[in-house]
Structure formats: C-alpha cells, structure tokens
Amino acid sequence: MITYLLCFILFLVGLYGVLTRKNLIKIIIGLSVMEYSLYLFLALIGYIDGGAAPIIDPSKPAGLVVDPLPQAFVLTAIVIGLATTALLLAIAIRLYKKYNTFDIDKINTLKG
C-alpha cells in the first residue's frame, strides 16, 4: 500500500509544481511528472506476484502472467504524452518569442 501512497505523493508534487511555479517550462515539467505518476500507478495495479511478463511461449502451457490490459493502455498514453508535451513546448516557445519572457504573470499583464 505504501507504493500507492508514494505514487500519489508524486502526483501531488507535480500538482504543486503546476500551481506554484511561474516559469512556463517548469509548469510543463510538473504536468509531465503528473503523467508519469499515473503511468506507474496503472502498471502497479496490473502487477501480480510471481507473474511473468505477458509473452506466452505457445509450446508450453500458460503459466501466471501479469495483467496485459493496463500495459496496453499505458503504452498508448506514453506516446500521446510525448505529443502533448511537445505541443505545450511549442506554445511556450511561441509566447517567448512574443513577450521575451517565460513569466506567466508578465505574459498575463503585457496585453497586445
């Protein structure tokens, strides 16, 4: 149970970063940390003690394997996470070119 709690604390660290940092790059890092904690949580849920990796040798009878369903979900989520992180970075660099700063407070006040 303590691994679940640590996963949740990692999620809270990411949330803290998103809420308190002023720098756009650090906000993106916080979002990515939240994503990572979610991946690890899903992989933890599907783990079975003594289970093998979900690759079955067809010549032998099937033994105990871990749950392949959360792994399939996380596999797609990782690639989507990379694409959305790159999208956020594109927005950040576009804002930097316009306002010459990463500070979200200054970006908010310097209209136009």
């Binding site: 991946y39 992989a43 933890l44 599907g46 783990y47 289970g51 093998a52 990796a53 979900p54 690759i55 871990v66 792994q71 996380v74 596999l75 990782i78 690639v79 996470g81 990379l82």
Partner: peptide, 13 residues
C-alpha cells in the same frame, strides 16, 4: 513490474 513493452517505449520517449 514485468512490463518490458512499456520500458522500451519509455526509454526512447
């Protein structure tokens, strides 16, 4: 956690 598929994707990502 016995998830080699995820490990190989995550390291390149």
């Amino acid at each position: 956690l016995k998830a080699p598929d995820l490990a190989i994707v995550q390291i390149v990502v």
